[in-house]
Design a protein around this nucleic acid. Structure first.
Lengths: 252, 252
DNA sequence: CGCTTGATTGATGCAAGTCAATTATGGTGG
DNA sequence: CCACCATAATTGACTTGCATCAATCAAGCG
C-alpha cells in the first residue's frame, strides 16, 4: 500500500533548491532565501497513491511540491469524486480552503512525490517579516483561482471532446513550463482514465470513448496509465483554449 | 441601458462603513482603519446589468462590494457562458486571476451595486505597512478558492436537482450571513433562471423544469426574476451539502 | 499461474439538450 | 389609455449525448 516516509531535517537545503534554477520560477532575494530556509522544517516523500491531506481533518502543515505529480479532490457521501486540480513542482499545497481550519479537500499523489514541509503557525511571521513573500502567497492563491475558473468553464460549458482536449492540453502545458518534462525523453502525463473521468465530470466509459476519438485522430497517444500529447496545437483548437504566457512566477 | 456612475471622493468614509458593524465581519484595528481609509480612493455605483470588469482587459482597480449583488463569469468564443461565482457585500472583486495582468473573467451587476475603489498599484504598500491586511487578502483568496472547489464538485458530480438545490442553498446562506437580508421582509435572491442555468451548466429549459420540481415541492418559490427559499433544511438535504460556520471573516 | 488493475467495446436506457410555441409582465410611445 | 414590444417563465414533442450494464482483453505481479 501507499506509504508515507517523512524525513527531517531537510535533505535539500533551500539554497540548493532545484526549482530556483528553473527559468519559470522567480528567484529569491538573499533575505527571502534566509527566511524560507528557516520556514522549511522538513521534507516528505510519498509513494504513488498515498493520501497526503484528508478532507475534514486539521492539517497544521503546508507543502510546496519539490518533485512529482498529485491532485486535489472532493467526494460526495456516496463516493462520487471530483478532481479539482492537479499539483506539480512549485505548487503550494494546503493554502486552498480555510487557512486555519479543517481541510476542505483531499490530496493524493499520482507519482512518487517529494514535498517541502512548512508550518501554518508561522504564516503570520512570514507576512510580518517578508511582505514580498506575503504578496507572493496572494499571487499564488489568485493563480489557483484562475485555474479553477477555467476548469469551471470547461466542465460547465464545454462538450466531452472539448473538455478532454482542454484537460490534456492544460496538463501538458503546465508540465512543460514547470520543466518537469526536461529529464526524460517521453513526455507522459501520469494519470489513468479514471482520473480523467473524475476531472471532467464524465463516466469512465464515456471518457474512454472520448479519449479514443482523440487518439484515433493522432492528437495523442494513450499508454498504460498515462498519456502523451502528440499535437499540442490541434488540442488547443479542439478545446478552444490557449495557454497564457505567465512569465516568471513566484513560489515559496 | 446599464450605466456607470463613479463618485469621487468617497461618500461613505471607512470609519462609518456599514459592513464593519455587522457581526459576520471582523473589525479593523485603528491603524488598519487608518490605512484602509487612504487605500480607498473612491466609490462606484452601477445599475443592474452593468458590466464592471471585462475579460481580457487591464483593470488597474480593485473593488470591495458595499451593497448589492453581482457575478463573475467567463464566455467561450461562441457565446456559451459560465457563471463562476456570485459577489456580495464584503467581497473583494478583481483579486481573482493574475494580480497584475489582464482580467481573466468579467463581472456584471445583478442589482444596483455600490463598490469601494482601490488601486492595485498600492497593494505592495498594503503588504509592507500592514502585514495583517496582507494575511487577510490571502485568507480572502483562499475562501474564494474553497467556494470554487465546491462549485466544481457540484457541476461535475451532482445531478441537476442536487445542483439547483445546492446553488440556491448556497446563495441563501451567503445572503443570510452577510446580513443582506436584514433590511426587507422578503428574502429574495435576485436572479433569473438564465443565471441559474449558466451557473449550473444546464440549458434554460431543463433549469426551468428542475426549479419547477423544487417549487412544486414547496422548497422554494420562484418569482418574476428571483427566488425565495422556503425550506432551507430540505434544500440542504437534497443538495447533500451544508454550510460550514465561518465565524468572523476579514474584509478590506 | 491466477489475481488485480486498467483499457476497451457493444447494447440499452435515461437525463438533459434542442426546437417551438404560449403565457405572463412590465415598460413605452403614440 | 392602450397597442405594441421586450424579457422572463413555462410547457410539450422530439432528439441526443452521456450513463449504465455487462463483457472481454491486456499487462504486471506475488
Amino acid at each position: 500500500m501507499a506509504q508515507m516516509k517523512p524525513f527531517s531535517p531537510p535533505r535539500i537545503p533551500c539554497n540548493l533548491c532545484p526549482l530556483r534554477r528553473r527559468e519559470n520560477f522567480r528567484d529569491f532575494t538573499p533575505e527571502e532565501l534566509g527566511f524560507v530556509s528557516t520556514f522549511k522544517i522538513g521534507e516528505l516523500a510519498v509513494d504513488p497513491g498515498a493520501t497526503i491531506i484528508v478532507e475534514g481533518e486539521m492539517h497544521p502543515q503546508l507543502y510546496t511540491v519539490l518533485a512529482g505529480w498529485g491532485f486535489r479532490y472532493k467526494i460526495l457521501e456516496d463516493g462520487r469524486r471530483q478532481i479539482l486540480n492537479y499539483i506539480l513542482p512549485g505548487d503550494l499545497v494546503g493554502l486552498q480552503g480555510n487557512l486555519m481550519r479543517e481541510m476542505l479537500h483531499s490530496v493524493e499523489a499520482l507519482t512518487r512525490m517529494t514535498l517541502c514541509i512548512f508550518e501554518r503557525d508561522r504564516l503570520t511571521s512570514l507576512f510580518r517579516k517578508h511582505p514580498s513573500l506575503g504578496y507572493d502567497l496572494t499571487w499564488i492563491a489568485s493563480r489557483e483561482e484562475s485555474m479553477l475558473d477555467e476548469h469551471l468553464l470547461s466542465i460547465g460549458r464545454r462538450t466531452a471532446l472539448e473538455r478532454a482536449a482542454y484537460l490534456l492540453a492544460f496538463l501538458d502545458h503546465r508540465a512543460h513550463v514547470t520543466g518537469i518534462f526536461n529529464e526524460d525523453g517521453a513526455k507522459i502525463l501520469p494519470l489513468t482514465q479514471q482520473h480523467v473521468a473524475d476531472t471532467l465530470g464524465l463516466s469512465l466509459v464515456h471518457t474512454n470513448k472520448t479519449l479514443r476519438r482523440l487518439s484515433d485522430a493522432n492528437v495523442l497517444r494513450w499508454l498504460d496509465r498515462g498519456s502523451e500529447v502528440l499535437e499540442r496545437e490541434r488540442l488547443f483548437d479542439i478545446a478552444g483554449w490557449r495557454p497564457t504566457d505567465e512569465g516568471q512566477r513566484p513560489f515559496i
